[in-house]
Design a protein around this nucleic acid. Structure first.
Length: 168
DNA sequence: GCAGTGATCATA
DNA sequence: ATGATCACTGCC
């Protein structure tokens, strides 16, 4: 069973999308080659009140995609060398996204984007075959584990929220 | 443990 | 214009 996840899938609340995205496949088509990898680790970033979320200080040029329609990619550059891949969720004008932190065989959000050649060209694009990057449900069931998020110690109480989902 | 790296954003 | 910050990685 191979089913491309429709944009509707991402309109649900971010925690629900994050949870159900683990065990699904991230598929990248680049230069005619298709690579499908199971997602093993994600994190949820939920709205302006989430002190770890980029949207905590309101809309800016960088994060405006998060305020848009669900099912679009939010890709940004950080630490002078790494691209981060997120998928926008929830209703329009509600800034929330799921960070894809790892897939099978590629541990770490920065490595993942490097291996799959993901950069700002995908920012704002939709998750579909047309953009060359999309998600598929291949009918795999997995056991999950919830933990607090990585690299957000500055976020006070929000740093402790169990918004990270990893495969067990 | 921590240096490297540069876009982004707030402040002026 | 300047300076602090950063959803990380790789090497020590």
């Amino acid at each position: 069973m191979k089913k491309v996840l429709p944009l509707k899938f991402f309109k649900a609340p971010v925690l629900k999308v994050a949870e159900s995205l683990v065990g699904k496949y991230l598929v990248r088509k680049s230069r005619g080659k298709e690579i499908a990898l199971m997602i093993t680790e994600v994190e949820a970033y939920d709205g302006c009140n989430d002190l770890a979320c980029h949207a905590r200080h309101g809309k800016t040029k960088r994060n405006e995609v998060m305020f848009g329609e669900a099912g679009h990619f939010y890709v940004y550059f950080t630490y002078g060398m790494h691209w981060m891949l997120n998928i926008v969720t929830g209703p329009k004008d509600y800034p929330a996204a799921v960070l894809i932190r790892g897939v099978e065989g590629i541990e770490g959000p920065g490595r993942l984007t490097k291996k799959l050649k993901i950069d700002k060209k995908l920012n704002g694009k939709t998750a579909s075959k047309k953009s060359g990057l999309w998600f598929e449900d291949r009918g795999v069931a997995v056991r999950l584990k919830r933990t607090s998020r990585i690299g957000v110690n500055y976020a006070g109480a929000w740093a402790k929220k169990p918004y990270r989902f990893v495969i067990q």
